[in-house]
Design a protein around this nucleic acid. Structure first.
Length: 491
RNA sequence: GGGCCGUUAGCUCAGCUGGUAGAGCAGCUGACUCUUAAUCAGCGGGUCGCAGGUUCGAAUCCUGCACGGCUCACCA
């Protein structure tokens, strides 16, 4: 059995031949002064004649992505971070060095100096005066016309995906723009970015199963955070009024087109404001980010167009259920809710609380319909152990979720600041945990202690960054917006 | 975890009811100093995902396994 394919052996042979010629194909350094798209843009309107008159020299480094060999002349395209440009290697110009051109392969990284001109077919091209090999590529790249399509290889070898699929590079460049826009917006509104523990002794702030690890020196188990919420609120107790954290959360749950075990989350907290304020704030934030990333608020997603122009409707959860034909008595009576859900063939957990059952019905009946941006507000209290109750109805909390493209994009509420109420709600969660609810919250005595010092009234929000990026880049899978998604080991 | 689909050359894919494994691109040799999916002539390249089974004979049929995709369930 061969260790390498013939194609790799051939390239290793070329590598050795180059070394015999005194050329080290990995040792070079080359500071290029230009980039492909910079040259393309700058000389876009320069004619063949004007380029001939005014000698334009340039230097460039990048990867050879195609070659056409004519014996004493060779055409190639080189690709750098910005784009592609054609190269022309000519024996008249390069002399003996033309021999080295014959040792070049598609995939090699070179640095070159040359002069711009236009070919007979009017393509802007660099006539190469001199070049160095900066890296010999030993593995053949995917085919020039069809590229790399195999989804598994694209995720496992993202580097190859990025080389050959420009739209993938584009998506991740946009991800960067989106995240920068979020930070810029928040900072313009007086927020500071903070970092709180990713390794927590008590994983809190969300309902999810955590990853567990162990610290040897301390002799304790630690959990990768499922949310930063409880630490960010401690910072409000400490006196900061506007804080945010934009970083990874970890949840030990299923993997799907919408879930990766590590995912990016924006959480921000603002003192002396409530959830009503946050709805307008969210409209501003997301429309700002969309405008920066896409230059428009009407964005294509799958088969539809989503219009992010504010304001977005605010619909109480109960009203949304009624609108979709859920009978009023289901909203007020747990047994009737169970009976109705069963009659409608909606799968529910019969031991669940009334609020949880309504949530199941909501996910089945309402969520798929929420394509255009919509705030669903006022959730049942038992779904939200960290949110503030509504003054006029203690069964509900001041909470909203934002849905776009049938997907939850944001979750926010007016924060519970009453330490005794918080303690009771933790106690209820601990009880649920004892009953077998693996995702119920833990008791966090220190968080309650922090609230006992007094936390200002505040509102907080979480936005799933990966899902927002999916929305704004028209991606159907979370793996298309995470550079290295989690996969099972090869073989 | 369940269901459905996929896995054949470096890449993209054919391969029908079982009968010696195919193409294009990429590669190699040669020709060609303005091509751009260059062209022309020739050549090489395969554990058909893995392991069993049925059969005279399996890429093809059956079973199991691995990995991936879609989807359902849980979740953000």
């Amino acid at each position: 059995m061969k260790e390498f394919s013939d194609l790799i052996e051939q390239r290793i042979k070329k590598l050795e031949e180059l070394r015999q010629m005194g050329i080290e194909p990995f040792g070079g350094t080359f500071y290029a002064e230009n980039h492909a798209s910079e040259l393309q843009d700058k000389f876009n309107s320069s004619t063949k004649e004007s380029l001939e008159e005014s000698v334009v020299s340039c230097s460039l480094a990048g990867r050879i992505v195609s070659m056409r060999d004519f014996g004493k002349a060779v055409f190639a395209h080189i690709q750098d971070a910005t784009g592609k440009i054609q190269l022309y290697f000519k024996k008249d110009v390069l002399g003996e060095k033309q021999v080295i051109v014959k040792k070049l392969d598609i995939g090699d990284i070179i640095g070159l100096k040359g002069q711009l001109f236009r070919t007979r077919t009017n393509e802007l091209t660099i006539e190469v005066k001199d070049f160095v090999i900066l890296a010999k590529s030993l593995r053949p790249l995917p085919e020039k016309w069809h590229g790399l399509k195999d989804i598994e290889t694209r995720y496992r070898q993202r580097y190859v995906d990025l080389i050959v699929n420009p739209d993938v590079r584009q998506t991740f460049a946009q991800r960067s723009v989106i995240i920068k826009a979020i930070r810029d917006f928040l900072e313009s509104q007086g927020f500071i970015e903070v970092e709180t523990p990713m390794m927590q002794q008590i994983p809190g702030g969300a309902t999810a199963r955590p990853f567990k690890t162990h610290h040897i020196a301390l002799g304790i188990d630690l959990y990768l955070r499922i949310a930063p919420e409880l630490y960010l609120k401690r910072l409000l107790v400490g006196g900061y009024e506007r804080v945010y954290e934009l970083n990874r959360n970890f949840r030990n749950e299923g993997i799907s087109t919408k879930h990766n075990p590590e995912f990016s989350m924006l959480e921000f907290y603002i003192a002396y404001r409530d959830y009503n304020f946050l709805m307008s704030f969210t409209e501003e934030l997301i429309s700002y980010v969309a405008h920066r990333a896409l230059g428009t608020l009407k964005i294509p997603y799958g088969d539809t167009t989503i219009d992010l122009t504010p304001p977005w409707p605010r619909i109480p959860m109960r009203e949304a259920l009624l609108q979709k034909g859920v009978p009023p008595e289901v909203l007020n009576n747990r047994e009737k809710a169970i009976a109705w859900a069963k009659a409608q063939h909606i799968e529910i957990n019969e031991d669940a609380t009334h609020g949880k059952i309504l949530d199941e019905i909501f996910k089945e009946r309402v969520e798929p319909e929420l394509v255009q941006p919509t705030f669903i507000i006022d959730y049942p209290v038992e779904l939200s152990p960290l949110a503030k109750k509504k003054q006029d109805n203690p069964e509900l909390v001041e909470r909203f979720e934002l849905f776009i493209a049938s997907r939850e994009i944001a979750n926010a509420f007016s924060e519970l600041t009453d330490p005794m109420d918080q303690h009771d709600r933790f106690a209820k969660q601990v009880e649920a945990k004892k009953q077998g609810d693996e995702e119920a919250h833990w008791m966090d005595e220190d968080f309650v202690r922090a609230l006992e010092y007094g936390m200002p009234p505040a509102a907080g929000e979480g936005i799933g960054i990966d899902r927002l990026v999916m929305l704004l880049t028209n991606s159907q899978s979370i793996r298309d917006v995470i550079l290295f998604p989690q996969l099972k080991p090869e073989q």
